[in-house]
Design a protein around this nucleic acid. Structure first.
Lengths: 142, 142
DNA sequence: CTACACATTGGACCATGGACCATGGTCAAG
DNA sequence: CTTGACCATGGTCCATGGTCCAATGTGTAG
């Protein structure tokens, strides 16, 4: 089996060497084997694992969630239902976030629609709305 | 004019005293006047300004952006177009973020749809997709 | 042999928006 | 006078996902 130094692995996968060491510190990848001169040695399996992380990240999973997925993926007692539940939960979170953003967008659009965009800011309807003429635009989100 | 200590102001507006001091450090609110005993002293105007910040935040503006809005709002040379441009730019950013999230959501939904949710993770289509059937011709297993 | 590229470590730093802490001064009530 | 609530400062810490750094060792090409 071909062994890779951290730099080769990084290039092959498309991440930085710092990122690989960071993932190792986080426990996302196992502590690598070492050469005589204490260099980390990797295999193609490690490249696969890093690509897995990259793809999961692009689907919105956090590193912590990816860690869970990786644990499950090598747990003989884990079920497809476990994985599916994680993905479904993530979808729910994203849906929620989209709803929040959509509400915010609507609020801003309403303000923008009220502003003709001419003249000084003295009577800007956007600023007036923020200054709280009608002070009860309640329930902040985060 | 009634003067408020930081605690009273915080309660009135619904933020913490830490938050008010933090905003002062950031330059979002002016350095407060001080009492003989070095206590910060605030007026109703400060309460208005803090509420402005609270509302703008709930509309998705960052503190830096809110700072700009506040500068514009007291700049005689500023125009409604300036404010409107800020709001429109923010809408664009939000729209973009929503598009990203929607794409991610669609990707996840597609994966979830492929998984029947029964049995061990050995042949989980979600994990298989993340493991990169696209990127690698060689699916070694043993 | 001499460069130069690459590897190692631990730690500091980035943005964001505050929360929390210790230590010490101030103020009002009882 | 004492107690407890409030205020001051400057500092650290949180999550997130890394990046950058210095000092030092190693591998390789010319």
């Amino acid at each position: 089996m071909e062994t890779l130094t951290i730099g080769k692995l990084a290039k092959r996968v498309g991440v930085s060497t710092d990122t690989i060491r960071f993932y190792e510190r986080c426990g996302l990848i196992e502590t690598a084997a070492r050469s005589e001169s204490n260099y980390r040695l990797y295999s193609e399996d490690d490249a696969l694992r890093l690509r897995f992380i990259r793809r999961a990240k692009s689907l919105g999973f956090t590193l912590a969630e990816i860690g869970e997925l990786l644990v499950l993926s090598s747990d003989p007692a884990a079920t497809k239902a476990d994985i599916k539940a994680r993905a479904t939960k993530k979808i729910d979170k994203i849906r929620h976030r989209i709803r929040d953003l959509t509400r915010i967008q609507a609020g801003l659009e309403q303000l923008v629609a009220q502003c003709d965009g001419h003249g000084s800011v003295d009577d800007c309807p956007i600023l007036e709305a923020l200054s709280g003429e009608h002070a009860q635009h309640n329930r902040s989100n985060h």
